[in-house]
Design a protein around this nucleic acid. Structure first.
Lengths: 223, 223
DNA sequence: ATTTTCTTACGTGAAACACGTAAAACATTG
DNA sequence: CAATGTTTTACGTGTTTCACGTAAGAAAAT
């Protein structure tokens, strides 16, 4: 079986050595290069293509997140695993957005590091449970917020919900009127009632309401 | 120190016995009641108020999620921990929405169960790492989707972004004009340009764009 | 120095909003 | 079944925004 080729990027050679020694025992993984910053990394990549790049997040010059973006643009086949002391939500989220496949705290156990590398090599994402839990907080926080407003939607009649949906999908009054075989004035009336019932002042907040309540799907509607 | 009082709700008495024996050794936790379904549970609660209710998700009659809702309505001080064989995202998310403070798979280790109970008793949420990771998938899936459209926002000038933000916050053209000391016609012009650049046809999609790109925060804006 | 981009702004007709009023159509229930 | 309440339909009027075109001065880039 082909080994998993790894490049380490960290400005502290001690840290690189530590990781190297952790990985040395593994028969599946080989460290084929090291870099201390972004410049070194991209020089290295010219001749040496790894399967996985393990990046520290705080580096001199460009940050690990910036490097991740660059790597994914220029070498999309390389998977990026972030190692970081920082566990704040923002960091993790930005890393993921930049294209990282995994995120581990620096005090990760050897076993978890190996698991992460192997998972990522198989095409999966990997995040330590600590990271997971941090991310979940905000995830659930939002889920709960949704639930709080949800009851308000029950105030609307069937027709009103129907129209709210169409409005939130971006249809004009005239289009809605045509589709429902009613006059535009009626559509306006419904809208007014909806705004009153939801205690909302403008159609912008109406859209937000619709999104929050799952009446429309943010990631689907715009074609 | 006062013990943590727990009620177990599961229709299989064997499972209840299993959990009881796991908890028996702990000096901090005491099982003060058991129920096999919702009716039994609420009869029990009339006389016996636990700190934490540990619910199976699949019960005869009302589901664990429905019971969670009821519990949180009638006895909001009781924290709910869900035990379940089912790890699908929907289940977990619904449990959280219903008010559960934690969610564990049924094959949880004793140690993790104790940790969960203790965390919840201290007012924290607790989700097993397996659960966390499942939830994260969809969380990050969305985060990535955001990133894909994000580049479009770079097309906008500073002024345009400024105005987009105000529009998405629900401000009228006149209000924006006033705040920026420009005419409403200029605001209109900016809007037109924004729509053109983003290839968007209406202000509804504009709001969606703003939300997707983190220009405004769904959970903050409406007061 | 010249081209491009950004910010500002207007004209015009169509559409939408805000706020009030109100008549049918349905439901509910006393 | 009559009465009351809710839902759906609709209009009037004045204000605001939209859509589409045009354009000039300021700032930035080449």
């Amino acid at each position: 079986m082909k080994k998993i080729n790894v490049i380490l990027v960290d400005d502290h050679s001690l840290v690189r050595d530590g990781i190297k020694s952790l990985l040395k025992d593994s028969l599946d993984i080989e460290v084929i290069g090291e870099a201390g910053n972004g410049v070194e990394l991209f020089n290295l990549l010219k001749n040496t293509l790894p399967d996985i790049a393990i990046l520290d997040i705080s580096l001199p010059g460009e940050s690990g997140i910036e490097l991740t973006k660059k790597i994914k643009t220029q070498y999309p086949q390389i998977d990026v695993l972030i190692l970081s002391m920082y566990l704040q939500e923002d960091f993790v989220l930005n890393a993921v957005k930049a294209g990282a496949r995994g995120y581990l705290p620096k005090n990760t156990s050897k076993a978890e590091l190996l698991t992460a590398i192997s998972e990522i090599n198989q095409g999966n994402d990997y995040f330590s449970s600590e990271i997971s839990r941090i991310m979940l907080k905000s995830y659930f926080h939002k889920a709960k917020a949704v639930e709080e407003t949800k009851n308000k939607a029950e105030l609307l009649t069937k027709r009103e919900k129907e129209i709210l949906k169409m409005v939130a999908e971006g249809m004009h009054n005239s289009q809605i009127a045509e589709k429902l075989f009613i006059s535009t004035r009626t559509v306006e009336s419904h809208k007014t009632h909806i705004l009153q019932k939801l205690e909302i002042n403008n159609s912008v907040d109406l859209v937000k309401f619709a999104i929050k309540n799952g009446i429309i799907d943010l990631n689907k509607s715009e074609k």
